[in-house]
Every structure is written in structure tokens, then in C-alpha cells.
């Protein structure tokens, strides 16, 4: 009788453990280490204009067992965008270009995923979603890699007592600035229409 009870309890505990393991995890992309970044490049006659943005927040719900169900939203603080030349940085943030005073955020909201492939702890997929820049929202599709790093949160924050997983997202894609009313059709002799973007961000899902 007792043996029977122990076996049933063990099975219940195991089943509960598996269900916890399989549950989707919500990763917070606010990065205390300041590592998360987006780099952008625009071709220009004298030299390519390359800049960075580091003010990244947002959350992504990711289930390693069901990566195709991934959902989430990433937000970039436009005030964090900068380039090495101070005059260019002022122009970039000014009303004619990104108008950061009136449009403080660039957002991407994932809607669905296709071509999902899993290899070890890395999932690659084409993520369809809504990109909003300067108040204009467009549907775009971005190739993204998701690297799930179980139990690595403690190592990242240098505190082994903190338990949790990390999720690293990487994406390289390009957009057309005219599509987002950024000097559409203007200054094409000075700055290319195409903006190349490279996103590298890590989110944390603490476990209690």
C-alpha cells in the first residue's frame, strides 16, 4: 500500500516537474550589463555611417519545446542611438530624421514564425512582425536566431545564487528608410535609402 502511494506520488512529482520544464519562459531584455545592442549602417559617399543603439527593453516568451509559439516585443529607446560624429548624431536625432523628441521608441512585435529549425540549443526562424519606426508601422519578416542558455543567468550576473535561463537573439536585416517616412526620397545622394541593422540581445528568465 505504502509502496503504491510512493510510486504514485513520484509519478505525480515527475509529471509536475516535466510540465514545469516544458512551460514557456518569459525573458526580460532589460540588460543590466549594457551589452544588448543594435548596430546600423548606411552607405554614404565619403564613408559608411555606422552607429549604435543600446537602450533596449522588452520581453519574449519562448518555449524550448515549442519554439514556433514564440511571441514578444522588443523596444529600442531612440535617444540611445548615436554615431561617432556629433553633428551627424544631432541630425540623426533631429526632427528631419528620427525625431526622437516625438518618437521616443522603435518597436518590433513578433506575430508569427516560419521556417523554424532547431539544432541543439539554437533555433532559427523567419519571424514575421510589426516594426514601428517614427510612428509608421510596417509588416516585415526577419531571420532570427534564438540561442537558449539554460541556467546561465547566475554566471552572467556573477552571482551563482541567482538561478535562471538566458535567451540570446541575433538578427541581421535591412529596411528602407523611405518606408518609415525618414527623409523619403531626399538626400539620397548623401545617405543611402537602405539601412542595414544588426541586432544582438540577451534576455533573462529568473527562476525562483
Amino acid at each position: 500500500m505504502n509502496t503504491h502511494l510512493i510510486v504514485r506520488t513520484s509519478l505525480l512529482v515527475a509529471a509536475f516537474g516535466l510540465s514545469v520544464q516544458a512551460a514557456p519562459l518569459t525573458f526580460d531584455f532589460k540588460d543590466p550589463k549594457g551589452v544588448n545592442n543594435v548596430q546600423f549602417t548606411l552607405d554614404a559617399p565619403l564613408e559608411s555611417i555606422t552607429g549604435t543603439g543600446t537602450g533596449i527593453t522588452g520581453s519574449v516568451t519562448f518555449d524550448p519545446a515549442q519554439p514556433a509559439a514564440t511571441k514578444g516585443k522588443i523596444i529600442l529607446d531612440t535617444k540611445s542611438l548615436t554615431v561617432g560624429n556629433p553633428m551627424m548624431a544631432d541630425h540623426l536625432r533631429g526632427g528631419n530624421w528620427l525625431d526622437v523628441a516625438n518618437h521616443p521608441a522603435i518597436t518590433f512585435e513578433a506575430v508569427s514564425m516560419t521556417n523554424v529549425r532547431t539544432q541543439g540549443n539554437v533555433v532559427t526562424a523567419d519571424v514575421a512582425g510589426k516594426l514601428t519606426v517614427k510612428g509608421v508601422t510596417k509588416d516585415i519578416k526577419v531571420p532570427v536566431s534564438f540561442t537558449h542558455l539554460p541556467d546561465k543567468l547566475g554566471a552572467r550576473v556573477n552571482d551563482p545564487k541567482i538561478k535562471g535561463d538566458l535567451l540570446v537573439l541575433r538578427a541581421n536585416f535591412s529596411i528602407n528608410r523611405a518606408d518609415f517616412s525618414i527623409q523619403a526620397g531626399k538626400n539620397t545622394d548623401k545617405v543611402a535609402e537602405t539601412i542595414q541593422l544588426s541586432l544582438s540581445i540577451a534576455g533573462a528568465a529568473p527562476k525562483s
Binding site: 550589463k33 549594457g34 551589452v35 544588448n36 545592442n37 548596430q39 565619403l46 564613408e47 549604435t52 548615436t82 561617432g84 560624429n85 556629433p86 553633428m87 551627424m88 540561442t147 542558455l149 546561465k152 554566471a155 552572467r156 538566458l166 540570446v168 541575433r170 544582438s200 540581445i201 540577451a202
Partner: peptide, 25 residues
């Protein structure tokens, strides 16, 4: 430098745990 004047410089570093390359300005 054959481009425009720069008043901040970028060094690319790598985060050991995540493998993310990030610019340090």
C-alpha cells in the same frame, strides 16, 4: 581618417557568457 571627424571611438568586445559582440564607446 578619410571620413568625418569622430569624437567618440568604438571598440568591439565580446560578452563571455552570451557570446554577444557589443560596441564599447
Amino acid at each position: 581618417h578619410l571620413g568625418f571627424t569622430q569624437t567618440s571611438l568604438v571598440t568591439i568586445k565580446r560578452d563571455e557568457i552570451t557570446g554577444i559582440d557589443y560596441p564599447e564607446r
